[in-house]
Every structure is written in C-alpha cells, then in structure tokens.
Design a protein around this nucleic acid. Structure first.
Length: 430
RNA sequence: GCCCAGGUAGUGUAGUGGCCUAUCAUGAUGCCCUGUCACGGCAUCGACUCGGAUUCGAAUUCCGACCUGGGCGCCA
C-alpha cells in the first residue's frame, strides 16, 4: 500500500511511496533523489553499490518531474530532511518527464506569470501554488458549511441569459440557436426572484462574466462569486452575516491548511476580529480627499488610489456604508429620511473592494421609478419585475468575489494567482 | 478604450551602433565525486518575435505587424 510522504516517519520500517522527482543530486557513488507528492518531500538515498543494479540504473536515467514508484527501507537519520530517508529496493519510472521542462518546479529560477499559466499543470506542482488552491478549496467548503448552518438554500441560476438586464458592465454576447444571448454578469436578479418565491435565504457559488477590457492585477473576465440573499433582512443583518462568514473562513483556513501554508512558505493567518468598522461614505470621502492627489468629493466613486488611502487609515477589513443613491444600482434601497443616500455597503480589505451589497428595493413602483431614473427601460425587465407584484418580502444581500477574497487572505500580488485557469483580456488558453 | 513599459537559449536575465563569434544563472549531455539539502569541479549544448527602413556596419535607431506586462478608465 502506498504511504503519503507526510506519513513517512522515522519510526516506519518500510514504505512504498509515489510521486514526482523533485530534484536529483548525484554525488557519484551516492545519489539523492527528492521525491514529492502533495503532502511533502521525501529524500530517497541511493548508495549505488548497495542497491539492486536495476535501481541504480533507473535512478541514473530518470529525469526531473518524472512519476515514480519507490519502495524500500526507512532509516532514521539526522542527515536527511525530516529526520528520515528511504533507501530503495525498487525504483520504477511510471511516466518519464520530457526534458527540458518548460518551467522549473524546484523554483531555482523564477518564471513570469504568463509562462506559468501556459503550463499551469507544472506550475501547480509547486508547493506554494498547491497551497493556494488548498486554501481556496477550504474557503469554498467553509462558505457552504457556514451558510447551510445558517439555513440558507443553495441554488444555481442560469449563466446564459437573454438580455443585458442590469446595465453597467459589458456582457459577452453568445449565439443561442436563432437568438442573441449573453453570459451572465451576476445572479443578482435571479436570487431576488427567489425571495419572491419565498425561499427566504439563498446562496449561490458560481461563475460570473464581465466583458471589460481592463488589464490589471485585480480584474478577471471570468470570476467566481459567492452570492447571498435573505428575506426579512436589512443591510445590517447581511453585513453581520458577511463579517462572520469572512472571519469564519479565515478561522477554518488557519485550522485546516496550516501544513499546506507552511509547505508553501506562507505566514500563518491572522483571523480578523469582528465586528468590522462601519465607515460612512461621506467620511470615507473626507479621508480620501486628505490622502490623495486627485480631487474627490460627494458623489464620486472610490478610485483605486482612494481605496488604498482609506485602507491605510483603517488598517483592516471595514465596511463603507450609506452610499449616494446616484452611484449605486437601481435595486439599492434609499433611506426614507434622506433618499439621496441608500442602504448599500461595500466590504473593503485595505488593498481593495471584496464585496458589495445592500438592502434591496422590494416595492414594485419604487423599483420601476429607479429603473427609469437610471435610464433603463422597465419593459425589458418584465421577467424580473413580475415577482414584485405578487408579494415580495423586504430583503437584502451581497456578492463576494472568491478570487479577491483568497488573494487578500494570502497576500497574493495578482488575482490570477487565485484561479487555476484565469480568463483575462488576452488569455483564453488553457 | 487611453497611457506607459517590454519581447534575447527550456526558464530567469546582461547587453544604448563596431569591443557580440551575445553575459550570467539555472537546465540538458558527458566525465570526476559516498552525506547532499541551491552539492561541488571540468567540458559541451542551447537565444536576439516577424517584416521593412536607415547605416559601411543593427540585439541596439526608425516604421509596421504580432505578442505580453502594468496603470488608468470602466467594473450592477
């Protein structure tokens, strides 16, 4: 039976291990082969004169990153990494790797992200990269667990939609038989319709598509969104839910990914403390105005420079609340006493925006008015507006970008690092 | 979409008109080497994105194409 490398301890007598050849150091009569599986690295020590001839020959001819099956005696020794080494009685090359490699998995020579993404399967063999995706998996697992525990129903909604229903961002057009269709930018309208269906609490984890021609380290054209919507809830309720979820994800990653983070060279995570500060938009603008060169005032969106200036001031996660109605989508609920402000919020990490949400407009007439105010035609929103005429509970929700969440959690410099196969302005393959 | 930067061995780089038969590292191949952990030593292999122009001479200057990175705009 095969033993994962992390389980190969000095106390074992014999083990069979499988993995990739990470490095070969041939000292002449003695060869060290570092064998890597996803749990760690094991030194295979080959004294040429004291192993079967077939083993010595296989070790001599094997190439880096080949897949091998090795079994032999485990010896406890101070001289080997991890305090143990394997002296092989058999060394079988299952799949020989071509040479030269398009990427140095052992990380002696760095590679640019573009080179790395071209051969992502090799890039992902690096413990640091594997750790990122172990963390991403743990985050998604915890999100689902957390929301299920809070009695949310997981839904999936169409990614092929009929029209550019929300305005704003550009959509990718596709051919849908004889009709024109688009890739969906957000499950927003669908999750709201499910409030009309009486599901009360829903969430979706799924892809969203944005046809923006940006070229930055924090934008993707295909991203993964965690979307939540809850009935009989206001913006404060869903902000509580969001900050608890964020904190809970950090906690779960810290608890379950410590080994992977260590192998990948990441520092242990600090779990952010809740509640996160609530910074009113007007105060955020004041901080930004003091901190940046460009002029900024009420009614402006927060530029990346403004976000960084405010983030520096705040130091950790925070919410920007009470936004001008004019710069939020039509479905954000204005305050009764001052309709120029609305019940919308953004969740910010000091480096960038992670999530945005709001209490929604649930009144049919008000929703129609706001659509018109944004220059949209209510007629083309009929499928969305209809549920608002047959009993729509008050509701609130948010969307959280998985890639940015993982990126800020691990301090990654480029959002592409947080997706296996990113889709950006230029990349469609692999 | 606008702006900036860039494209040199498999990978990462040096190279601002002749000293380039192109640097260094890593890698691959061969030889030596029994405790390496970025093993060491010796030798060899391997590259100027493409097309045009200027010039006696272009990796280097200019024009175009293609490709890429980044910033901004935009991002319900």
């Amino acid at each position: 039976m095969r033993t994962p490398i992390a389980k190969v301890t000095p106390g074992l007598e014999h083990a069979k291990v499988v993995g990739f050849v990470h490095e070969i150091r041939d000292l002449g009569g003695l060869t060290f082969v570092l064998l890597r599986d996803r749990t760690g690295i094991l030194q295979v020590t080959v004294p040429k004169k004291r192993v079967p001839p077939g083993v010595a020959e296989a070790v001599r001819s094997v190439s880096r990153e080949s897949v091998v099956v090795v079994s032999g005696k485990i010896a406890a020794t101070e001289k080997a990494p991890g305090g143990r080494e394997l002296v092989p009685s058999s060394f079988e090359v299952v799949s020989r790797a071509e040479s030269p490699l398009p990427l140095d998995v052992a990380e002696k020579v760095p590679a640019e992200i573009d080179t790395r993404l071209d051969v992502r399967f090799l890039d992902a063999r690096r413990p640091r990269i594997a750790a990122i995706f172990e963390v991403r998996s743990a985050v998604l697992h915890e999100v689902a667990r957390f929301l299920h525990r809070h009695e949310f129903v997981q839904i999936t909604t169409p990614k092929i939609v009929a029209a550019a229903t929300e305005g704003g961002t550009e959509l990718f057009p596709i051919a849908y038989f004889e009709k024109e269709a688009f890739l969906n930018q957000s499950p927003q309208l669908y999750k709201q319709m499910m409030m009309g269906a009486g599901f009360e609490k829903v969430f979706e984890i799924g892809p969203i598509f944005r046809a923006e021609e940006h070229n930055t380290t924090r934008h993707l054209n295909e991203a993964t969104s965690i979307d939540v919507e809850a009935s009989f809830a206001d913006q404060e309720d869903v902000m509580h839910l969001l900050e608890d979820l964020v904190s809970s994800c950090y906690g779960h990653v810290a608890a379950t990914c410590a080994d992977a983070l260590g192998r990948g060279g990441f520092e242990p995570l600090d779990v952010p403390r809740t509640p996160f500060p609530r910074l009113p938009y007007t105060e955020a603008i004041e901080i930004a105005a003091d901190g940046i060169e460009e002029p900024i005032g009420f009614g402006d969106d927060l530029s990346p420079a403004a976000e960084r200036a405010i983030g520096e001031e705040m130091g950790g996660h925070y919410f920007v609340v009470d936004w001008p109605t004019a710069i939020r989508p039509y479905y954000a609920m204005p305050y009764d006493d001052d309709p120029s402000l609305c019940r919308a919020f953004d969740l910010m990490h000091p480096r960038m925006e992670l999530s945005s949400g709001a209490q929604r407009v649930h009144d049919h007439e008000m929703l129609e008015r706001q659509l018109v105010a944004k220059g949209l035609d209510p007629a083309s929103f009929e499928f969305y507006l209809r549920p608002f005429r047959y009993g729509m509970p008050p509701h609130a929700g948010w969307g959280l970008g998985v890639e940015r969440f993982v990126m800020t959690m691990l301090g990654l410099s480029n959002v592409r690092e947080a997706v296996l196969f990113p889709r950006d302005r230029h990349r469609l393959v692999p």
